[in-house]
């Protein structure tokens, strides 16, 4: 996992220029959705946004979890982890149940509601570009190196170093390192993350664990249930037979 790649976004370096937003639209061939990029929000045609919180600018995008809820819930396996660590989607498999949208702890996946052959839409960390040796669009476009790309272990190292070297500048937390089991998008910030609209009450446990605890009981319910019902079938049948025999012998005695 540590050889997989991801991005680190340093909010203190972001100037809110919107280059990442424009580049994302360009590499993914997405139409324009808002005249003012700062007022746009994630949609089927917008995979990353820049948001303004006073003097602070921040980004929202798919967190590319290590153990993604969306991957675990997709019944046909249309959402998968790529070898790079990115969470990618295959529209040809998708049946459109939208359980991924319901399950995502960060509420990231969007849907093409207006189409008759709709797809799930979200950032895929430019998986094709990365596999071809290029940088993700947003990283390439960023003029201030607020968003950087690299191997996960290196990114974690850089993030930790920055928090340590300048404790006054940074809120001492790497968002995305442990949230919902951690992922491939790390964020460091000057202020607590709930002030910037990030989901802050997430557990550190990967979300699929919550389901697995119930799912792992299925084999025992099936086998135990089968045995119990078979046993009850024979027992109650025998009981009825005995009752009948008793009845008939009683009847004979009375005659």
């Amino acid at each position: 996992m540590l050889n997989e790649t991801g991005i680190l976004f340093d909010i203190t370096l972001c100037e809110g220029c919107g280059a990442c937003y424009d580049m994302c639209k360009e590499v993914n061939n997405l139409p324009e959705t808002n005249d003012d990029y700062l007022k746009d929000h994630l949609s089927d045609n917008t995979f990353t946004v820049v948001e303004e919180y006073g003097e602070i600018y921040t980004r929202k995008l798919c967190m590319h979890c290590n153990e993604p809820a969306c991957v675990s819930v997709c019944l046909v396996g249309a959402i998968k982890k790529s070898s790079t660590g990115a969470v990618v989607y295959d529209a040809d498999k998708c049946i459109g149940c939208r359980y991924c949208m319901q399950a995502c702890p960060h509420s990231i996946p969007r849907y093409e509601w207006g189409l008759t052959k709709p797809r799930i839409r979200k950032c895929n960390l430019c998986d094709d570009r990365v596999k071809a040796g290029k940088l993700p669009g947003c990283v390439e476009a960023c003029p201030t190196e607020a968003t950087i790309f690299g191997k996960m272990d290196e990114l974690i190292e850089i993030a930790k170093k920055r928090l340590k070297s300048d404790p006054d500048k940074y809120y001492q937390h790497i968002y995305g390192l442990e949230e919902a089991g951690g992922g491939h998008v790390l964020i460091i910030s000057p202020v607590p993350f709930e002030q910037l609209g990030y989901v802050s009450k997430l557990t550190n446990e990967p979300m699929p664990e919550f389901t697995m605890r119930a799912m792992e009981k299925i084999p025992s319910v099936a086998i135990g249930g089968g045995l119990f019902l078979s046993a009850m079938f024979w027992l109650t049948k025998r009981k009825n037979e005995l009752a009948k025999e008793k009845k008939s012998t009683n009847g004979k005695e009375s005659i």
């Binding site: 675990s72 019944l75 396996g77 249309a78 498999k93 149940c97 359980y99 119930a214 799912m215 299925i218």
Partner: peptide, 11 residues
Amino acid sequence: VMWNIHSVMFE
């Protein structure tokens, strides 16, 4: 034909 046995929806 496309299985993901970890999905409750699949079950």
